[in-house]
């Protein structure tokens, strides 16, 4: 048995780490939006998908993946800001109306992509290609680069939140909206910014994953559900919790997917979240969602 189980476990571990870090980046955006704005953004997966699609457009038009990596979060962040101004602000961020509005946004974005980009799954060539030989199997070097890039971006995001004025505004608004307002934090703009940055983070994760996964207009749903899983297990609004939970869920998902079946892994994850929320009404660490 060890002869066959060993490589499987190693592969599961590798897939798990790569998946976990990209997931952490996606979920960080969702968690930021919930933490600052107290809203559940159902369109988050659509932002992830848009990031991948924009990356395909930019890199096939210019041949530069790096340019696409910059353009995707900026474009998607911009769309998110516009959505915030045109829709969410007008309904006063009322929790349930916001959920309905972001479901609407999800379908509008997804279907517009279907109209223009089409129903295809299209690949983008990895900017770097090499394989690492593990003896039993070769592993895509780009996947490891993705993991490293995601880890780097997570650290950068954490630094930006803890060391910059913008980060201070975000954290202050998250703590107490009214007090932040009293201290001249422009809460309206902070909301737009949080929604934009949240969307941008999802888009960045989507962009990073395109060379591995291909861009498809329906790829957002899985990203959304897994992000929910992570953000809830990690505790809503808790960024550290989000990253820890992403690693746990990503590794578990990788392991169960490789050893059993991806569908079973998702059934387990979704049931787990349902049960955790049902019992505690909140995540494992973090605050009440009500």
């Amino acid at each position: 048995m060890p002869v066959t189980l060993g490589p499987h476990l190693l592969l599961a571990l590798l897939e798990g780490v790569v998946g976990a870090l990209v997931l952490a980046l996606t979920a960080l955006g969702l968690s930021l939006v919930f933490g600052v704005m107290r809203i559940v953004n159902v369109a988050h997966g659509a932002f992830f998908m848009l990031g991948a699609v924009v990356t395909w457009y930019v890199s096939s038009a210019t041949g530069s993946f790096l340019l696409a990596l910059v353009a995707a979060p900026l474009a998607v962040g911009g769309i998110a800001v516009v959505a915030d101004r045109l829709v969410l602000r007008r309904i006063g961020y009322e929790p349930e109306s916001t959920i309905v509005a972001t479901i609407g946004l999800l379908y509008i974005l997804e279907q517009l992509v279907l109209m223009t980009y089409g129903p295809y799954a299209r690949p983008v060539a990895a900017p770097i290609y090499f394989r690492i030989d593990f003896g039993w199997f070769g592993y895509s070097g780009y996947k490891l680069v993705v993991a490293a890039a995601a880890a780097f971006l997570l650290v950068a995001a954490w630094l930006a939140l803890s060391r910059t004025t913008l980060g201070l505004y975000l954290r202050a608004t998250q703590q107490d909206r009214e007090i932040a307002q009293a201290f001249a934090v422009p809460v309206g703009r902070v909301y737009s910014l949080a929604f934009g940055v949240g969307g941008g983070l999802a888009a960045l994760a989507g962009a990073l994953i395109v060379p591995v996964q291909q861009a498809h207009y329906l790829m957002g749903l899985d990203a959304l559900l897994l992000s929910f899983v992570v953000v809830i297990l990690g505790g809503l609004g808790s960024l550290t919790g989000t990253v820890v939970a992403a690693l746990v869920v990503g590794l578990a998902d990788g392991a169960v997917s490789v050893l059993f079946s991806p569908t079973l892994a998702k059934i387990v994850a979704t049931l787990l979240v349902g049960v955790v929320l049902a019992v505690r009404g909140r995540g494992l660490f973090g605050e009440e969602l009500a």
Binding site: I99, L225, L277, A278, G281
Partner: peptide
């Protein structure tokens, strides 16, 4: 025991 968005997410997950 869930209210508001938590009810919504639990039902969605189930």
């Amino acid at each position: 025991r869930t209210a508001g968005p938590a009810f919504l997410i639990v039902t969605m997950m189930l």
